[in-house]
Amino acid sequence: MSAIQSNMVSSGAGSSASATNEAERRLVELAKRNRDAFALLYRQHYPAIAAYVYRRTGDRHATEDLVADVFVIVLRTLARFRYRGVPFRYWLLRIATNTVNRWARRQRRRQPQALPDDGWPDPRTDAASGVGGIDRERAQSALLSLSAKYQAVLALHYFEGLSVTDVAAVIGCRPGTVKSRLSRARDALRAKLEDRR
């Protein structure tokens, strides 16, 4: 592992983005046949994927289960991954998005208006510590009541900071579709927030 890590650091710490991309590409290719490289890839990306899933679900236990599902899919399908000019992270986000979307659809069918059940409150992320007049619990509840595809575009754009073009690359549609979906998602979220006043 250490040899791989040092190799990646020396390759990826350069100033140019292309050097970093090349280092990532090499790590991904190596991970297809080298267990330690896969472990490094997992450790590099676990925190970001967990954060993305957590922001969407608001539930720590569900997040741990879903992130496990994501990486099992990654392990099973990595051999088929091909670089096509988009970061490896976007491929992971696509798998995570599809995984959370399936979970969200199940949740909506079971408990359409349920609040997230986070049994592990964290002082840094306490539900009461929202912004302005909106507490996080209410915001999370409103988000989870939207359709999965609306949740996805909102999360990728506003939580992950992806541009419209990058969101389109992640979810596999046209930028124009993302734009219109974002607009509708915001309108739907506004309506849900007003319902919960």
Partner: peptide, 18 residues
């Protein structure tokens, strides 16, 4: 309120292990 809600959720950090 939409901006507030999104900002609130975006600031939520993963509370679990790295």
């Amino acid at each position: 309120p939409v901006e507030q809600a999104l900002e609130s959720l975006a600031g939520r950090a993963w509370p679990g292990a790295p």
